[in-house]
Each structure stands twice: as structure tokens, then as C-alpha cells.
Computed example of a mutant assay.
Amino acid sequence: MKKENIPNALTFIRIVFIPIFILILMFGKSYAWHVVAAIVFAVASITDYLDGYLARKWQVVSNFGKFADPMADKLLVMSAFIMMIELKMVSGWIATVIICRELAVTGLRLLLVETGGVVLPAAMPGKIKTFSQMFAIIFLLLHWNLLGQLTLYVALIFTIYSGYEYFKGSAYLFKDTFR
């Protein structure tokens, strides 16, 4: 495999891990299976960091990567939160806020590209949001409840704040909406 394809392969691996992660949580109800799910989620999360790092280092950008990398991240995190509602590890309202923000910012990014070709890069609050969401999921799956809940609320705060920042910076798109 050419090194240029490695970031895309890592993204593809992350996508493949999503149904595996879901199946583990669907059928593995014991603590041991939650640990396995945490490991699968952690490995998938590491591929998120690694594919971005390698793509920047090697300066390789592809249409697949531009589409699939952010989509894989969102699908992984949203799947985890939905499954964790069922397992009563995460409150439904928190997962709803997080999922709605993810969908809204994804829509905003599409609108920015469509209206002016602007690509909205991830800002630091968004990176902290992603990092804290992933760690909250891992901690909660490991049943480190206090640390998991604290990290989850940090993730919630950065989810709301980063979403606000993205929309505030793009408010010009909606200036004629209610006139």
C-alpha cells in the first residue's frame, strides 16, 4: 500500500469498527464486554488522530478523506452515545445535545462549502470537544463513573461552546433569514 493511502485506510478501519463496537455493546452485557467495547472505541479513536496526523505530515488530501474522516468521527461518537443511553450510562438529554450539535455543525460546513467554497476547519474548542467526548465514552465504558461523568460534562460544555462559536462566525450566512 502506498503511504498516500494509509490515512484513508485508517479512516476506513474506523468505519468498520463502528458496527463491531455496536454489536459488542448489544450482545455483551457484562463488564468484561464493556472493557472490550472501550478498547475497540479507543483504537478507533486513535485512528482518528493518526489519519489526520499522517495526512498533514505527508500532505495527502483526498475527496474520500475530506468526506469520510469527519463522517466517521461523528458516526462513531453518535453510535456510542446512542448505545450508552440504552445501557443507562448516559442521560438522553446530554446525548441529544451532542448529536444535534454534530448534525448542525455538519450542515453548517456543507452550507459554507456550497455558498462560498469555504472549508470550516476544526478550531481548538472543537478539538477539545472531540477529545473529551472520546475520553468520556471510554471512561464510562470502563465504569469509571465519576471520571466519566466529569469528562462528559466537560465534553457537553465544549460541545455547546464550539457549536456556538462556529455559528457565530458564520452568522452572515443567515442575515437575511427573517427580514
Rank of each mutant, 00 (worst) to 15 (best):
K2S: 15
E4L: 11
P7W: 04
N8S: 14
A9S: 15
F12R: 07
F12G: 14
F12D: 06
F12L: 14
I13H: 05
I15G: 10
F17K: 04
P19V: 03
P19M: 02
I20K: 02
F21I: 04
F21G: 05
I22R: 02
I22C: 04
L23N: 13
F27E: 09
F27D: 10
F27N: 14
V36W: 11
A37R: 01
F41A: 03
A42T: 13
V43S: 06
I46F: 12
I46V: 11
T47N: 02
T47G: 00
D48G: 02
Y49H: 09
L50H: 10
D51T: 07
G52N: 00
A55D: 03
R56E: 02
K57V: 08
K57L: 14
W58G: 04
Q59F: 07
V60Y: 01
V61C: 07
V61E: 11
N63F: 03
N63P: 07
F64C: 03
F64Y: 13
K66G: 05
K66Y: 00
D73S: 00
K74V: 03
V77L: 03
S79E: 00
S79L: 06
F81A: 00
M83H: 00
M83P: 03
L87V: 08
K88C: 01
V90E: 01
V90M: 05
S91I: 14
G92T: 07
W93N: 00
I94H: 07
A95E: 06
A95L: 03
T96E: 12
V97C: 10
I98Y: 01
I99H: 11
I99T: 09
C100S: 14
E102P: 11
L103R: 11
L103P: 13
L103K: 05
A104E: 11
R109V: 01
L110S: 15
L112F: 08
E114Q: 14
G116D: 13
G116K: 10
G117H: 02
G117T: 05
V118I: 15
V118G: 12
L120A: 15
A123T: 15
A123D: 15
G126Q: 06
K127F: 07
I128H: 11
K129G: 01
K129Q: 10
T130L: 14
Q133D: 00
Q133G: 02
M134S: 08
M134H: 06
M134A: 06
M134D: 02
F135D: 06
F135P: 04
A136I: 07
I137A: 00
F139W: 05
L146I: 11
L146H: 08
L146F: 12
L147N: 06
G148Y: 00
Q149T: 13
Y153N: 05
A155V: 03
L156W: 02
L156G: 02
L156T: 12
G163F: 02
Y164S: 08
E165G: 09
E165N: 13
Y166T: 10
Y166C: 11
F167S: 01
K168V: 07
G169T: 01
Y172L: 10
F174P: 10
K175I: 12
D176M: 08
T177K: 13
F178D: 07
